[in-house]
Structure formats: C-alpha cells, structure tokens
Design a protein around this nucleic acid. Structure first.
Lengths: 238, 238
DNA sequence: AAATTAGTCAAGCGCCTGTTTGAAATAGTT
DNA sequence: AACTATTTCAAACAGGCGCTTGACTAATTT
C-alpha cells in the first residue's frame, strides 16, 4: 500500500506487474520515437518512474526488454495471421485469393492503433525492420521467421507461374511497402499535406492492398503469361 | 611526406583531402553496418586511422559527417534523376511511360554498387529512411525533398485518374519497396536462400519495376476505371 | 511469529560519449 | 630563411552507458 500511495498511481492487482508493464510501455514508446540504439536504460526507467535496477531485475538486459515488447504484441497477431492464412490456403488457387492472402498477412499489423501502446508498437515494428543493430536483428528474427515462412508457402501456392527469383522480388516489394507504411516517417506527409497519414489503417487497407495485389498478380517477367491467364482486378467491395 | 610514409598509404594530391575522405568512407561504412546512433565518433576515427579531433576540425559535428556523406553520393544521382524525369515529362502521359518514370526515380539509386563505397551508401540510405533519430531525419529531409517533389509532379501528370489519397498510398508503396530493397536486411535472403540477394541491381530493375508499374497503373479504387482504360503491361524488353 | 521470498532502492562498477583545448608539426608563400 | 596558414596531435572536459551490488522493505508461507 505504501508504494502505491507514494507513487500516487492507481492500485494494481499483482504487486510488480505494474513495474514490468510500465517498463514495457515506456520502452515501447521510446524505442519507437528515437530508435533502439538511441534510448538508454536510464531513459526508460526515468520516464517510467521506476528504479534503474528494475530493468535488469525483471528482464535481464536491454535486449530482453525489446524481445518482451515484440512477443507481447506479436503473439496474438501472428496467431491471427496464421488462422487467416489457413483459410486462404484451403480456398485454393484462383486469382482472386491474392487480395485475401495479402490482407491476412498485412491486415492484422496495419489494423493496430486502437490504443497508444499499439500505435507505438506499429511504429517500432516498422522502424526496427531496417535497423542493422545485431540485437534488434536477432529479436526480429526469432519473432517473425515462422509466420513469414507460412506466408510464403501460401503465396507460392497461389502464384504457381512465378519463378523463385520473381517471387523473391515481389515479396520484397510487399514487405517493403508494409514496413514503410508501418514506420510512418513523416516525409511523404510533409510533401502531400498534413491531411494524409500512413497511420490511417483504413486507408492502408483500402489502397495499399489493391496496389500490392496488382503487383503480385501482374504477368510474370520470366515466362510471359500463357495468354489464357487474365484476371479481374477490380474487386474492392469489402 | 613523413605522414604518408608513416601511415603507409598512397600519396594524395591535396594535403588533407586524404583525412576528409577517409573519415567519410569509414563513417559511411560504419553507419551502414550498425546504424547512425550505434556508431561513435571514436569508432570512426579509430578505424579511419585519423585523430579523434579530425571529425570536428573538418566537419564540425557527427551530424555534419552524415550530411556530407549523403551530399557526396546523392548530388550526382539526383541530377541524373531529374534529367531522366525531364525526358519522361516531355514524353506525355500514355500508360507505357510509367515504367520509365519509375526507372528514372528508382534506377539511379539501385544501380549503385560498382565500388565498395557505393554499396555501403546504398545500405545506409535504405536503412536511414526509417531511422527516427532527429539528426538523421533532418539530413534526409534536406537531401531528398527537392527531387521527391519533382518525381511526384511527373507521376501525377501520368496518373490523372488517381485521387490524391490514392496517389499518396501508391507512392508510399513505391517508396517502401525501394527503401526496403536498398536496406537489404538479410531476412528474406535467409528464407529464400543464399543465392537471392536484394543487392543484385539487375534483379531489382528486372523484377521490382514491373511490380511497381503494375501497382501504379492498376484501376483506381476510388473511381473505378472508365472501362476504356486498358493498358498493356508486359513490356519487359529493356 | 519466524522464515522465506519478491521487489525496490541508492550507490557505484569500468568504460564510453560528443566535443574542446592548446600545443606541435607540416605546407605554402614571401 | 622566416613567416603564416593549415592540419594533426594527446589529453582532457562533463556527462552518460549497460549493468551489478548489497542493504532494505514488504508480502507470503510455514
């Protein structure tokens, strides 16, 4: 009781879940705002209002904090992705399934943004995707590898005409677009005007997924399409 | 003479262009490898084999080094981009010009890679694009703003059917793909296999530009295409 | 009520940060 | 040969880094 009264925060059920969560929330925000390398453990504990030793008591290291942040948000998202991909996989391989596959993979991450914490994580995830820091790369690898492989399986099944090379480059474009939208650097916003924002999840789903669908279903470069293949691409009714 | 003999490097014409260039080359490599925030001025001067004070004598600050790195590589590239965009602009607005516009904007940066320094810069440019550090953002802004506006002008002219919203999101996808390819994080390579690499400039131009062309020329979501519009999209002869 | 456990705390470990200094060495000019 | 301007140098500035320690408080178990 004394602790709660002293810090003046709302009482919480578990005694130290408070400290743990406050560290995660604060670190999530600071990593998103300044980047992993530019944030110190002291920055985190100071802003979270906890003792400097709390990070190493509860997590063990700065890297472990990043890992916990990603696991906390991504575990449910990845479960949802796999579930949606399963549906697409069973639906078979006609041209129209591409939109659903992309939506299954991209949607759950772009829809984040209901809470401030989710918004921060979305930024962090996008910005971390090109962070060369070995600690960041290690965390991302352990957290993304499995679902990324599943995504590629389903995708390959839906695009039997694409050579591995072509699939590689198309997937890179999809990844790039998704990560850039998540990262939401304000450069395009500055050029187009303040009324546009990459953090607008509805816009992302409405416009980016058709763009990427068109790219994924375009006639292959390697073996020009066998003339029969001709797909409708204007299905934008949700 | 004594200095050259002592360091065992090839003699150079200008007296201190040596030190300046060595700092730029080394910083370019380290920033690319570890990220701007994770590299210290001492890391740079140590590896460059120059005195710790040289950075502030020749540049004034760490941020000014980053700025000089970008200006050195990007000034010729941006001149080339503007020249190529000019040609597209004059060519008028039929559907086939989209590939040329994208190639004009993306090509000159993806073609980098002839020297080790160019390869390092390509990585750095991609990775910096989502770096939230304010120093990095400031440098990128001053260096990219002008040519980005020109690109958008030409693009808008070639896509008269797209609403501003839709243009915004499509351009975001193009930017994202380009930056992700430049950044060349090794995650996709790890999944697809070592024989695939995002640093392969020929592959990027061969496969990514058709992908993005398909996305940019897809029927608009906002006002479904006026049924007349039907574009050929299989022009892959260079 | 005693013993155990979980959590918090201020202080400090050795090392690194971006930047500055004033003197020494070198190069270019007269 | 003397003089000036440019460049390099070791040393140091105040402060921050990730992480550890050992004492202390508070809740839980026995």
């Amino acid at each position: 009781m004394a602790r709660v009264a002293a810090t003046g925060r709302k009482p919480l059920e578990a005694p130290s879940a408070d400290t743990r969560e406050r560290i995660l929330d604060t670190a999530e925000r600071l990593f998103a705002e300044r980047g992993y390398s530019a944030v110190s453990t002291r920055n985190i504990t100071d802003e979270a209002g906890v003792n400097i030793a709390a990070i190493h008591y509860h997590f063990g290291s700065k890297e472990a904090v990043l890992d916990a942040i990603f696991k906390r948000r991504l575990d449910p998202i990845n479960r949802r992705r796999e579930q949606l991909l399963e549906v697409c996989d069973r639906a078979g391989a006609d041209g129209s399934v591409m939109t659903d596959i992309l939506a299954a993979f991209i949607g759950p991450t772009l829809e984040l943004g209901g809470t401030e914490g989710e918004r921060n994580f979305k930024l962090l995830a996008g910005r971390a995707s090109t962070d060369p820091n070995p600690e960041v790369k290690r965390v991302l690898f352990t957290v993304y590898d499995s679902v990324a492989r599943r995504f590629l399986e389903v995708l390959a099944k839906a695009c039997p005409d694409l050579s591995p090379q072509e699939m590689f480059w198309r997937v890179a474009c999809v990844y790039g677009a998704m990560m850039y939208i998540r990262a939401d650097n304000s450069r395009l916003q500055h050029i187009f005007g303040e009324e546009f924002s990459l953090s607008d999840a509805k816009g992302a789903l409405r416009y980016a997924i058709p763009f990427l669908t068109a790219g994924m279903t375009a006639p292959p470069v390697d073996r020009p399409a066998p003339a029969v293949q001709r797909k409708t691409r204007s299905r934008n009714a949700k």
